[in-house]
Design a protein around this nucleic acid. Sequence first.
DNA 1: GCCAACGTTGGC
DNA 2: GCCAACGTTGGC
Length: 152
Amino acid sequence: MRHWLMKTDPDDFAVDNFAKLPRKTTAWTGVRNFQARNYMKEMAKGDLALLYHSSCPEPGIVGVMSIASARAYADPTQFDAASKYHEPAATPDAPRWFLVDVKLERKTELVPLEALRAVPALSGMMILRKGNRLSITPVTDPEWKALEKLLR
DNA sequence: GCCAACGTTGGC
DNA sequence: GCCAACGTTGGC
C-alpha cells in the first residue's frame, strides 16, 4: 500500500465538508496538473492519503482519507462547459484529466505546517520543499511513520 | 525545440 | 496584498 498527501483550499473544499456526504466519500475533481494527475493514476483502492489545507490562515494536515475507487477515472467536470474546470480539448473517448474517489477515514487535530517543518524525519517531504506547488504528492514509508506520530 | 510572457500557487 | 517559484502557452 502506498501513501499520499492531497491538498485542498478549504474555501473550495474543507475537511468538514465530508460530514454531509454519503459514506463520507467524494470525487476529487479539479486537478489540472499533469504530474498530480499521474500520481492519481498510480493510486490503488485502500491507499491512505493525508488531507492538507492550503492557502488559508492555518495550513496543515487535518485528516486521513482512503482511496475509495478501484482506479483513477475521467474527471466529469472537464466535459462540463459551465464548469471552471472545463477542458475544451477533452472528449469522453480521449479524456485529459482523471480523478479518484476519496473517503474521509478520520478527522484529526490540525498538524500545522510549522510542526511538520520541525520534524527532522520529514525534512525531505515534497510539500516542504521550497517552491513546491504540487497538490498531490507521494509520502514515503519513513515519512508516513513519522507523520502518524503527529496525528491525534 | 527554445524561451519569454503569463497565470497560478501558496506561505507570509 | 506581496512575491518567489513553477507550469503552461505561444510565437518564432
